[in-house]
Design a binder for these strands. Structure first.
Length: 388
DNA sequence: TTCCGGTCCG
DNA sequence: CGGACCGGAA
């Protein structure tokens, strides 16, 4: 079932020219907008998938300085890539960036992929990012549809229904495609029209057509917007409510030995592969986790001190993390490989998961991980835990 | 506390 | 195709 074409043909040109004019006057001077390097734009788009502009800027600057091109990313140690990504979340995207960089640098023509199909071949690049790179870096008339654009277009059209359903989603892609093709054809609107138009669409969603309190009086499409005419901007998009959250409980072991703390690297069996954390175990809501922790780590009974209960949430889980501290005996056994004793001052060199990074901050404030403690301890000798 | 979001995976 | 993944803004 095809939805009716909801924009009259003669309105496409005013939509395009008014939005381009608005963008040329008001676009934020974002650092990646100074570049036409597809690598720089690709990195920014992957970062922007999940994070707002303000947060991305310092990450992008630091990334471009450390890994300025595809080949440097392809050749970098994974630890460096994860460290540069630390705090942005969705860490599989950092690993996908590197996998994609290796794929690009192995291309026979040595060029950054340009066609939509070749872009879609890259791990971590889906329909949105492929369209964004094709249009922004190469000025091709490829549509983009992200959360911003969905919000702008469902309001412009007063389009009811869940925009994630196949029929509505396809319709929105069709409208986005018709608009960017109109921009491509509107030669009196300057150069780089596809690149400017798609960025303008997202910019409009980000700073004017916002989720909660849209600033309609600043909108270049005010007089063309169906939701505005109906006085119902807040009704769109009609996204269904999220499922309720589920509580989960974890025990985290701050195991100290000679002024250092035990850290483990997350494996393929975990989420956040490659990131580091203090030994961390999911438990039942009311279980005493100490026995489980000692069993898992192969520890003798220790004198555990409960430090804090910390909270965080991801996706639909609400997590409680119980922090337990103990002095380890020197005769630890059965610790798996890829575990390290790390001095407090060296924690900064490891890419930590978010809850554990915040834990370190908090422990520093409480002087449990004070640098002076490390300075007093003897010169670290590498301690290799025996394999099981 | 609630809401937001692009791609991958099973 | 629905659920998992993350951190930050409102």
């Amino acid at each position: 079932m095809a939805l009716p074409s909801l924009i009259p043909k003669k309105q496409y040109l005013p939509l395009v020219s008014q939005l381009l004019d608005w963008f040329d006057t008001l676009a934020r001077p974002l650092p990646w907008r100074l570049s036409r390097d597809p690598y720089a734009i690709w990195i920014s788009e992957i970062m922007l998938q999940q994070t707002q502009v303000k947060t991305v800027i310092p990450y992008w600057m630091r990334w471009m300085k450390s890994l300025p091109d595809v080949n440097s990313l392809a050749a970098a140690p994974e630890d460096q890539v994860l460290k540069l990504w630390e705090g942005l979340g969705y860490y599989s995207r950092a690993r996908n960036l590197q996998r994609a960089a290796r794929k690009i640098s192995a291309r026979t023509d040595g060029c950054f992929p340009k066609s939509l199909a070749d872009l879609l071949d890259l791990p971590g690049v889906g329909p949105y990012t492929a369209g964004a790179i094709a249009s922004i870096a190469f000025d091709q008339p490829e549509p983009i549809l992200d959360g911003n654009v969905i919000r702008v277009l469902t309001r412009l059209l007063a389009l009811s229904g869940d925009p994630k359903t196949k029929a509505i989603n396809q319709h929105l892609w069709t409208v986005a495609a018709a608009l960017v093709e109109e921009a491509d054809a509107a030669s009196h609107c300057g150069t780089q029209r596809c690149a400017r138009f798609n960025q303008a669409l997202m910019e409009l969603g980000a700073i004017v057509c916002t989720p909660k309190q849209p600033l309609c009086h600043l909108c270049p499409w005010l007089s063309l917007c169906a939701a505005q005419r109906l006085g119902q901007t807040q009704r769109f998009p009609e996204t269904p409510p999220r499922p309720p959250t589920t509580p989960r409980f974890f025990a985290t072991a701050l195991l100290s030995y000679s002024g250092r703390f035990l850290l483990r690297r997350r494996t393929n069996a975990d989420v956040n592969v490659g990131l580091w954390e203090f030994p961390n175990l999911e438990t039942e809501p009311d279980a005493n986790p100490i026995n489980q922790l000692e069993d898992w780590l192969g520890l003798p009974p220790l004198n555990w001190v409960r430090k804090a209960d910390l909270h965080h949430s991801i996706t639909r889980y609400r997590m409680t993390q119980r922090i337990l501290f103990a002095e380890a005996n020197p005769d630890l056994r059965r610790l798996p490989s890829e575990w390290l004793w790390v001095a407090p001052n060296d924690l900064q060199h490891f890419a930590l998961t978010g809850p554990h990074r915040r834990l370190v901050q908090r422990l520093r404030l409480d002087s449990i991980l004070s640098p002076s403690q490390a300075a007093l301890s003897p010169t670290p000798q590498q301690w290799h835990p025996p394999l099981t």
